[in-house]
Structures are given as structure tokens and as C-alpha cells.
């Protein structure tokens, strides 16, 4: 029964702590249950229950058409593991993750360093770098599909004006994934930027001043002082970004609607198509549990990696 977290939370109000901490030492009563009950009820209904029914569906031939379902054992799982579409879409998700995490983290860090140094432009920089993050995905994809447009789009038009050949950014399999990664970086790097910016602004001035007095140039200060102090933030950003990238669907789906999707169909889109276009709830559930397994494995690996580093 020791789930109480420690009270050393930086964001908690800074008030004198009474000796012995803040542990609720009052006698146990049922009152607390009434407080947690509404949330727990919703949690059970909209999270626990579908998690369990999904697992159940994956063992049946349940369809969206409402026909009675029969138990099929592990047939869906066997089919999924042998389905080339599962593997290719899983591969696309992993490729997207591998390609998108580095630029999303590095661009966020770079923008934060710029904002932290160029303080007089602070307001403008924060607006420019973070604004894309508050845009609905459809706005992002409409704008970028237009920018990537063959012939008349901004990029190809500019390339043509420079006398360069044009690229079919979204239809050419060699570029489609990179184009989606570029759009994603533009759209969501602002989130990592904010986390880095908050961390940078928490570094006391004196640290920089001391390093400067010791004769460290700005590049040395960045490498020797700032980046090491950001290590914890980088760990957090990496964890959040990795899981967020694995969940890719929205922008990839919207940017390539109606295009040959072999190169740009993430695993979640395959779940969607199996369930809602193919009407196979049972099969789609099995595929989504495979995806779930990937996310859990990624989380565990990360957790072990970073908890070792913290020691």
C-alpha cells in the first residue's frame, strides 16, 4: 500500500513542510472511495472494458456487420503474423519512428537554444516555433499537400525557378516518407522545444557566468555545461517522442489519401482498414494488440535504459 509519491515535487507550492511529511495519517474510511469512484467508473467503462473486449474479439471472427461471432482461437493471431500487410505497415511505422525522432528532438533543442540566447526576440520566436503545434492536423496536411504539389506547389515551383528538376514529394515512394517526416517535424517539434526551453530557463545564470569566467567560449559552454545539464530533459523528450512517433497515423493518412500507400501506411492505418473498411473487428483487434505489444516493448526497453542511466 505504499503508492504515495515523495513530496519533493518542484512544482508543489513551496511551503514549510511539517515534520514527518504530508502522509495522510487520518484513519481509513470509505469517503475517499466516493472521490475516486466517478473517474474509476469511466475508466472501467471506456478503458479497461474495451481493452478486455478487444482481446476477446481477437479470438473471434466478430465482424462489424453484426453477424453472430464464433470463437476461432488463435486463428486471427496466426493470420496476422503471416500477413505481409501487417509486417509492411509495421515496418513503415518503425521507419517513420527512426526517421522522425532525431529531427524532432534536435530541431526542438536547436530552437530552444536560439530562443534562450536571443532573448529580445523571445515572444516572436516562441510564437513562430510553437504555433504549428496548436494547428489541427487537417490544417497542417492541407497546407503541406499544397506546398508539395507537383508543378505548381511552393517547393516544386521554387525548384523550377532555380532551374532544378521537380520531385513528386508524396507520390514517389523514395520521398513520400521523408515528406511526411518533414511535415511532422514542422508540426510537432514545438512540443519538444517547449520542454527544452523550460529546462534551459531553469539553468541558473551563475552557472554560465562561472564557466565564462573560467574562460570557456560559448561553444565550450554549450558542450561542457548546457548539454550535460539537459540530459534529463533529453531522456524525457526521447521517451515521449518515441512513443508519439510509434502512434503515427493522422498526418500520414491524410497526406496520402487516395495515393498508393505501400510506403506510407502505418500499422494503425492497417488496423483501421481491417476493422472499418474490411469489417473484420476480430482480425483488426489482433493486429492492434500486436501494435500494443510493440509500444509496450519500446516503453520497457526505454525505461530500463534510462533508469540505468539515472544511477
Amino acid at each position: 500500500m505504499t503508492t504515495r509519491t515523495s513530496t519533493e515535487d518542484a512544482r508543489a507550492p513551496s511551503l514549510p513542510e511539517p515534520p514527518g511529511g504530508t502522509a495522510p495519517r487520518r484513519p481509513a474510511s470509505w469517503t475517499g472511495l466516493w472521490f475516486v469512484l466517478p473517474f474509476v467508473a469511466c475508466y472501467a467503462l471506456f478503458l479497461v472494458w474495451p481493452t478486455l473486449t478487444g482481446l476477446g474479439y481477437s479470438l473471434t471472427d466478430q465482424s462489424l456487420s453484426g453477424a453472430p461471432a464464433g470463437f476461432v482461437g488463435l486463428a486471427n493471431w496466426q493470420e496476422a503474423l503471416a500477413d505481409p500487410n501487417v509486417w509492411s505497415s509495421l515496418r513503415n511505422t518503425l521507419v517513420f519512428t527512426a526517421l522522425s525522432v532525431p529531427p524532432l528532438v534536435l530541431v526542438g533543442l536547436g530552437m530552444a537554444l536560439l530562443t534562450d540566447r536571443a532573448r529580445r526576440l523571445g515572444w516572436f520566436l516562441r510564437f513562430a516555433f510553437f504555433a504549428p503545434f496548436v494547428l489541427p492536423v487537417a490544417v497542417v496536411t492541407l497546407i503541406w499537400v499544397w506546398i508539395y504539389q507537383p508543378g505548381i506547389g511552393l517547393i516544386n515551383g521554387t525548384l523550377a525557378a532555380l532551374g532544378l528538376g521537380e520531385v513528386n514529394w508524396l507520390t514517389d515512394e523514395r520521398f513520400a516518407m521523408l515528406s511526411v517526416v518533414a511535415t511532422t517535424t514542422w508540426w510537432t517539434a514545438g512540443f519538444n522545444y517547449l520542454l527544452y526551453l523550460a529546462a534551459l530557463q531553469g539553468i541558473p545564470r551563475e552557472v554560465h557566468e562561472a564557466a565564462a569566467l573560467d574562460g570557456a567560449g560559448s561553444w565550450q559552454r554549450l558542450r561542457g555545461v548546457t548539454l550535460p545539464l539537459l540530459r534529463r530533459t533529453t531522456a524525457l523528450v526521447l521517451v515521449l517522442q518515441l512513443v508519439a512517433s510509434l502512434k503515427v497515423f493522422d498526418q500520414m493518412y491524410l497526406m496520402t489519401i487516395g495515393l498508393p500507400d505501400a510506403a506510407t501506411r502505418p500499422i494503425i492505418q492497417y488496423v483501421y482498414e481491417s476493422g472499418f473498411t474490411g469489417f473484420r473487428i476480430g482480425y483488426a483487434s489482433a493486429v492492434s494488440y500486436l501494435f500494443f505489444a510493440v509500444v509496450i516493448v519500446a516503453s520497457i526497453v526505454q525505461f530500463r535504459l534510462f533508469s540505468r542511466k539515472e544511477d
Binding site: 478503458l47 474495451p50 466478430q62 512513443v243 476493422g275 472499418f276 473487428i281 492492434s288 500494443f292 509496450i296
Partner: peptide, 19 residues
Amino acid sequence: VVAGILVPPQVLIVPLFAQ
């Protein structure tokens, strides 16, 4: 409740829709 943080909402779309 905390364990629920690990469940990606994307995993639940199919059973949730049926529900």
C-alpha cells in the same frame, strides 16, 4: 489507474467503436 497510461488510445478504437 496508472497502468492505464501505458494503453495507447489507438489500440482501443476497434472495440470502443463496437461498444
